[in-house]
Write a protein that binds this DNA or RNA. Sequence first.
DNA 1: TCCTATAATGGACTGAGTCTAAGTCAATAC
DNA 2: GTATTGACTTAGACTCAGTCCATTATAGGA
Lengths: 139, 139
Amino acid sequence: MSDLLDRLRGRGWRMTAQRRVVAEVLDGEHVHLTADEVLERATVRLPEISRATVYNTLGELVTLGEVIEVATDGRAKRYDPNAHRPHHHLVCSGCGAIRDVHPVGDPLADLPAAERFGFTVATVEVTYRGRCPDCATAA
Amino acid sequence: MSDLLDRLRGRGWRMTAQRRVVAEVLDGEHVHLTADEVLERATVRLPEISRATVYNTLGELVTLGEVIEVATDGRAKRYDPNAHRPHHHLVCSGCGAIRDVHPVGDPLADLPAAERFGFTVATVEVTYRGRCPDCATAA
DNA sequence: TCCTATAATGGACTGAGTCTAAGTCAATAC
DNA sequence: GTATTGACTTAGACTCAGTCCATTATAGGA
């Protein structure tokens, strides 16, 4: 369960109470939290933690590749701790809920060289949009 | 060139100077402008146009399906007037530039029913990320 | 234990976008 | 052509997510 903390320590991360709490919050619940939700949960364990620290720590985790940032169109970014299993996202346009999905096929291979405009293409994100069962009926 | 205006009129759009200018700005340059860039260009033709009107009008054009909103991760949304030819986007992680691309294959078909979690899936967005020639060398 | 670079704090600040209340005007009816 | 009216526009205040910065605290090595 503290695989994440071990990995971070192994990379020379200076381990502070704040960083530990943020990492634990992400590692503990495998859902997609916003920065504010992370702050909220972190505050329960460490009441004096500041918003800036949460943002800094999330940013570092993203840079280290331990966490993926998921931008959901207007709403706040969400942070996905499941960075080590490649996947894409299914987003509810009603409530913003996110599920991890694993489509077959490789969209990177589907982009012909002629369509790359000289870019060095590094990643693809596939976002499926629709309505979750709750929002579909509520519509 | 005023196909767009005709279509809008045909749908019962009340044609005001502001809406015409916004529609013309989008229709005129087939690039992906931010709301502020649209405002800037619209202001040249109609100095008293307000920010709120630009946002309202862009929102209506999106609702009508004449324009696509492209969220680019932290930066301001961009508006893509090329809504009638299905396509995806290639985004430069350096400068935010966007190109339209047309990958082969249909990612909607690549999402197995078992991975849909009861969602009614409506659309897929594929976003390729990389560095444009300028930003690749500048890095 | 001490030292110092690294991290945390909190509050001000920014940028993008939304909201609101009052004023304006396009399109229809007469 | 004029009156009417509900849709549209305006300016500016407001919100929300996120960043910045000067100051203070502390982890981890010497």
